[in-house]
Amino acid sequence: MSDFKFKIPKHLEVPMGAVIPAPVKENPGMITGNWRTERPVIDHEACTLCLNCFIFCPDACWHLDEKTEKMMWNARYCKGCMICVNECPADCLTPQNELDFPKGVVRLDKPF
């Protein structure tokens, strides 16, 4: 019977049984905003708050801000699939190239 203990380097540690805490509001372990080549840009004037973008986004990147009554977009996680643009009945969403934005993800040395 030994008291021998292996040494596992910090960065390779895995919790016992690979059980990890659940995320709360977002999963910072997989930030996907830097996948994007285009982003959906909203025209709040034209938006009818139909909530199609909110309901159809696979990445849960659109939410209604109850206070401002405006749709809020999540730049950290939007992958740029453009389902929201395709499903918008008011035509208030347009895809725009990330290169058009001074802080577009493609311009960042370290996106997020």
Partner: peptide, 12 residues
Amino acid sequence: YVPGHRTCQGCG
């Protein structure tokens, strides 16, 4: 099912 997963763009 929060944002932050490696599913493809437009994943059904």
